[in-house]
């Protein structure tokens, strides 16, 4: 069957839109899922200690963000994930929405593809709408950002503090920044805890 879909025009790319949405990254404790969003965040933060960036355990970012948010209610937690990573364990959105922690923000960078494995199209390229799934899961605050003039609204939502929020950022399927980062998961755990708690 011929592909009758038209190629959407993307106004945003992740290299500029992710930093624009997050702003002062030091305000967040950050968990990022494999693989593109971990590169986005390692680039944005300079691979800083308040980032736990995964390169495996696909689907774990949102659930890990929930555990961290419940443990640190006075800190704002950002779980940043891609469309493929989130789809791997999309039920976590339901788990989070039921708890509705005031300090947890989910940012999904949706490029419609599995970038790490050769840019095969993900379900979102075929019409699956992750913001609608989040709304259906019970998120009371959500938005889809696909235009430059929407970035300020998304940035504000990531920083609100009266419930869990879900921000879907739709971007062109371009490469995340190439950046060296700590790939040893136990060392990253010790680094994160030491920075946050003053001890490993």
């Amino acid at each position: 069957m011929a592909d009758s879909s038209t190629t959407p025009i993307f106004e945003l790319n992740r290299r500029t839109a992710v930093p624009a949405l997050i702003g002062e990254h030091e305000d967040f404790l950050i968990v990022s899922g494999l693989a593109g969003t971990s590169k986005d965040m390692a680039s944005l933060t300079g691979d800083a200690a308040h980032l736990y960036a995964m390169a495996g355990a696909m689907g774990a970012a949102a659930g890990m963000g929930l555990g961290l948010a419940l443990a640190q209610p006075d800190r704002r937690v950002l779980a940043i994930t891609g469309d493929g990573e989130l789809l791997m364990n999309v039920g976590t959105l339901a788990t989070i929405a039921v708890l509705d922690p005031a300090n947890l923000s989910i940012l999904c960078v949706d490029n419609g593809h599995y970038g790490e494995t050769g840019y095969q199209k993900s379900h979102t390229s075929f019409g699956v709408d992750l913001e609608r799934i989040a709304i259906g899961a019970g998120f009371k605050m959500s938005c889809t950002i696909e235009r430059k003039n929407q970035l300020a609204r998304g940035a504000a939502m990531l920083r609100q503090s009266n419930g869990a929020c879900f921000v879907l950022l739709r971007v062109s399927p371009g490469e995340p920044p190439a950046v060296k980062r700590l790939l040893e998961p136990a060392a990253a755990r010790v680094r994160f805890r030491t920075a946050l708690l003053g001890r490993a």
Binding site: V31, A62, M64, T92, R189
Partner: peptide, 20 residues
């Protein structure tokens, strides 16, 4: 925390540890 599938609880435990 009611989970939809058990592996969420594994991720949750790791996140909890990051936050002490």
């Amino acid at each position: 925390i009611a989970l939809t599938t058990e592996e969420e609880g594994v991720a949750l435990a790791a996140g909890a540890n990051l936050g002490d």
